[in-house]
């Protein structure tokens, strides 16, 4: 099984990844194989089974509404590739 190139490109775009032309076939093949493995699930009837998103049967704890986080902008922006006047810079966004 291989993943069609068209589907692969669509998924790659959703994930914001580019695939070099020379690796497309490898990816198609490898992902196809993974999907084949994954398809083994279809053999089991799961009708009526509640999907399980968390391993523990626990409920969300709530935080009290207090300002507890201090922000050292300069320190945080030391990590940033491009900033100016405290703003993160990205190529122009056209709306």
């Amino acid at each position: 099984m291989t993943l069609e190139a068209e589907d692969l490109h669509k998924v790659a775009h959703l994930a914001r990844l580019t695939l070099d032309p020379q690796v497309i076939d490898d990816y198609s093949q490898a992902i196809g194989n993974i999907l084949e493995l994954v398809d083994e699930m279809q053999a089991i009837d799961t009708q009526g089974v509640l999907p399980m998103a968390h391993p523990m049967d626990a409920t969300q704890r709530l935080r009290s509404d207090e300002v507890t986080e201090e922000v050292d902008r300069d320190q945080l922006q030391n990590q940033a590739p491009a900033t100016e006047q405290g703003l993160y810079l990205v190529p122009r966004v056209v709306e």
């Binding site: 993943l3 589907d7 692969l8 669509k10 998924v11 790659a12 959703l14 994930a15 990844l17 695939l19 690796v23 990816y27 490898a30 992902i31 993974i34 999907l35 994954v38």
Partner: peptide
């Protein structure tokens, strides 16, 4: 790297 990209693609596909 390649394996990370592979898994991102598989995961994106599974949720699409």
């Amino acid at each position: 790297g390649a394996e990370v990209k592979r898994r991102i693609l598989v995961g994106t596909y599974a949720l699409s």
